[in-house]
């Protein structure tokens, strides 16, 4: 593998990429499904009076941040499966690395997300490493930030993914 990062990939670093809006407004149905799935009885999600007192009204659990951006499984007129984290797939293609795994996931939370919010997101490629060899194969590590904002432009969260794209060892 060449040491050099292709100039097209180099040009993506630090740029605001793939600005998107969520398919639907934040809603409590998914909040309750999520809480039910992990038996989360936190009263700020189940009791409006407690939510009013503590969080100024209902909110969504912070870790649900990426839920609001996963595309519908099907939508009328759509011909291609929509991909979350498109930069990751672009990197695999441009760097010729057919396999990839996520090694690390960090989420920083900002303003609370509330029912009715229309969130938007963009992705920023932070870095691409020099070629590395791991037990999986030869490839490169990369770091991608996914930045989430609400309809008022307030920061609600940033997810940072470290990926390793690789070609299996022969």
């Amino acid at each position: 593998m060449s040491e050099e990062i292709p100039s097209e990939v180099q040009s993506w670093i630090g740029q605001r990429l793939y600005e998107e809006h969520g398919d639907f407004p934040v809603e409590m149905g998914y909040v309750w499904s999520s809480c039910a799935s992990v038996e989360n009885g936190n009263p700020i999600y189940w009791d409006e009076a407690v939510a009013g007192q503590i969080t100024g009204g209902p909110i969504a659990p912070p870790t649900m941040i990426s839920v609001w951006f996963r595309p519908h499984h099907w939508a009328p007129g759509r011909t291609q499966q929509a991909q979350p984290l498109q930069v990751h797939f672009d990197l695999k293609e441009k760097l010729g690395l057919p396999e990839a795994v996520m090694t690390d996931n960090t989420i920083t939370f900002g303003e609370p997300v509330r029912p009715g919010d229309r969130l938007r997101t963009h992705q920023v490629l932070r870095s691409v490493s020099a070629p590395k060899t791991t037990k999986l194969g030869d490839g490169r590590f990369w770091v991608i930030d996914v930045i989430y904002q609400n309809q008022k432009g307030e920061h609600v969260g940033t997810e940072t993914y470290t990926g390793f794209g690789y070609r299996r060892s022969a």
């Binding site: 992990v38 870790t63 996931n105």
Partner: peptide, 25 residues
């Protein structure tokens, strides 16, 4: 994401409802 939801539940079971998650890795 469901693992993240389990971690959040585990932490806020301990803190109570005023516990506010700032960062998780």
């Amino acid at each position: 994401p469901n693992q993240a939801a389990w971690f959040e539940r585990y932490l806020t079971d301990w803190t109570g409802p005023k516990g506010r998650l700032g960062k998780i890795r």
